[in-house]
Nucleic acid binder design. Structure first.
Lengths: 342, 342
DNA sequence: TTGAAAGCGCTAACAA
DNA sequence: TTGTTAGCGCTTTCAA
């Protein structure tokens, strides 16, 4: 930067101003042009560490996700990055593999790197780390999953409506034995979806004894397979399944196949998320589509708004109200659902 | 840090030493313990920006990938992060969406954030940005794809051997009309794989007129579908296809299905990479497995070695030789290949 | 073994 | 409109 200033024949403070949007407006246009030309000629790249040290802002956002290998997340990341980048921010990604300790490590590492805020997709209903972050007044936006106590804004799909869509579809097809393979009860999505399932199934006057809810240990293929195996033993008359998400549905598909049952002839199956490749499975999965890119984008916008407020545009001491933003979902009917044959 | 020093009753320089591995060895053990206790009590997190400013090292590595939504990459990222994290490094991810301008923007943003080096998975054979980086002596390790001119170390699968495995498998099944849907010729993987295909097919004495190579515009489903459509017109007698990667294979699968051809009854198909869900497709895809996690881990190790050398362990002025590390591949036979029926 | 002091590159308050 | 100056939090040389 000193070099740039020297080449342009100005003081380095002036060069600094010329290179920043708000500073350049208070400068002579000719000076600005001269400095910018010099910067370009020297291939000047500002030192983010120095800027961050001085301004106490890094223009970096930490993004904490449970598992990057779940195809659900890459589109979310894309949405986040699009919005962030457009405002000069960068995302620092961390994948926790559903490990609380790993999460804490990553969180601290990110804090040490002076991220300005977080987008957190790993929230469980009781989440000590988030409680602590809330106390420390760290700017955070939750994605997909919320905490029991509303501490931070949450952007998620309208899961209850989504599950209702799924149940309505199945009931409309004539199913009266519908089971739910629910996500973990420690996660808000697990309880929201299973509660909505209960409600929807009741609304159709389906016998509760014939609409069991089985809990999966995780949103994973393996957990879905296990829960489905249990289900087939306890409720052999089941003709349709609403899975907690697509990975659980995939696991269920495996179990069905292993047991010699075919989908949709013997059992209909609905997933959740419409992750990439859901349409390529055997059979192509009927599922609830979540607008993932938009989800990520909204979360980023909310966080940016919060950060902008922190810049001094808000009344001092006021903390923004934690809103919940629910995005509309739609059912995508493919080949894993049909009318019951028995 | 001043607070920590005060609480421990030492000068902040001493606190700094106590908190660093190499500094603490030159200190009184009791002092070190006192400082560490104080740091813990205050929940001290070092300011990475300040450290980076002072040391000119960020312990951050930029990872530039073509497309995070390709399931090939998340496992690679995991491998990279595992190794990096174990050495106190963090990865900064950038997804370019195969856009050269986006790549340059991201590269510069990363440079501005003082990354210590890059792992680049987007190399094309002629790559101005990489040439420039080479001139600037930026530590870089290439992943998967190399440049024509060897400038940087490369970690990749042994593609030639992999393609040979695929062709041998098909020839062994009795196929004599084998086509290759090649990746873009601007990428090293495109030419390496198609060259290996040519060679392998020749080795089996297959008529070159019956073993055409068609070029895909990208490693994508859409490009694979297009190339396959062309193939079916120009070479209707084809009984087997070796796809440039799994996404191309998936596109080909769509085209075959659209044309009323079934796989493997009418046409056998082999993919490349064994990306997640390759085993869930219709039919489950026979493909060449690349050890992705290991690939990422090796790239990270190579870069770390280079960075370590930059710390002053190497002879001044010497630049490490750019090695190429090829990882062994294996063929995974599933249901998309069988003996030809015609 | 520890303290003092300088300075990494930048921005912002203050002066001119 | 531009220059001067101080200092963000840390590490490291030099001195004690």
């Amino acid at each position: 930067m000193s070099d740039v200033a020297r080449l342009a024949g100005v003081h380095k403070a002036t060069a600094s101003r010329a290179l920043s949007a708000q500073g350049s407006s208070r400068l002579n246009a000719a000076t600005v042009r001269r400095v910018q030309a010099a910067a370009k000629r020297l291939g000047y790249t500002p030192n983010a560490a120095a800027r961050s040290l001085r301004t106490n802002r890094s223009f970096t956002v930490g993004v904490i996700l449970p598992d990057l290998t779940n195809p659900l997340f890459p589109p979310i990341v894309r949405g986040i990055e699009e919005v962030l980048m457009s405002q000069g921010y960068t995302a620092l990604l961390a994948s926790t593999d559903n490990d609380a300790e790993r999460e804490r490590t990553q969180y601290n590492a990110l804090l040490g790197r002076q991220v300005d805020g977080f987008i957190v997709g790993t929230a469980s209903r009781q989440h000590p780390l988030l409680t602590q972050a809330h106390t420390a007044d760290i700017p955070i936006v939750l994605l997909n999953r919320g905490t029991d106590e509303t501490m931070f804004p949450l952007v998620a799909g309208d899961d209850a409506a989504g599950v209702t869509l799924a149940v309505d579809h199945l009931a409309g097809l004539g199913h009266r034995h519908i089971a739910h393979l629910a996500g973990p009860p420690a996660l808000s999505t697990g309880v929201v979806r299973s509660r909505a399932f209960r409600h929807a199934v009741d609304a159709h006057g389906i016998d509760p004894a014939r609409s069991p809810v089985l809990t999966c240990a995780a949103y994973s293929e393996a957990a879905g397979a296990d829960a489905c195996a249990e289900l087939l033993v306890a409720h052999p008359g089941t003709t349709a399944i609403v899975a907690g998400n697509d990975l659980i549905a995939l696991g269920a598909l495996h179990t069905l196949r292993d047991r010699g049952l075919s989908c949709p002839e013997d059992v209909s199956l609905v997933g959740f998320n419409d992750m990439r490749f859901a349409d390529e499975l055997r059979p192509p999965l009927t599922t609830v589509r979540v607008p993932n890119v938009e989800l990520g984008a909204e979360a980023a916008r909310l966080l940016l708004a919060r950060l902008g407020a922190a810049e001094g545009n808000a009344v001092a001491g006021s903390r923004p109200v934690a809103k919940t933003l629910l995005l509309p979902l739609e059912l995508v009917v493919r080949e894993s659902t049909r009318s019951p044959s028995r």
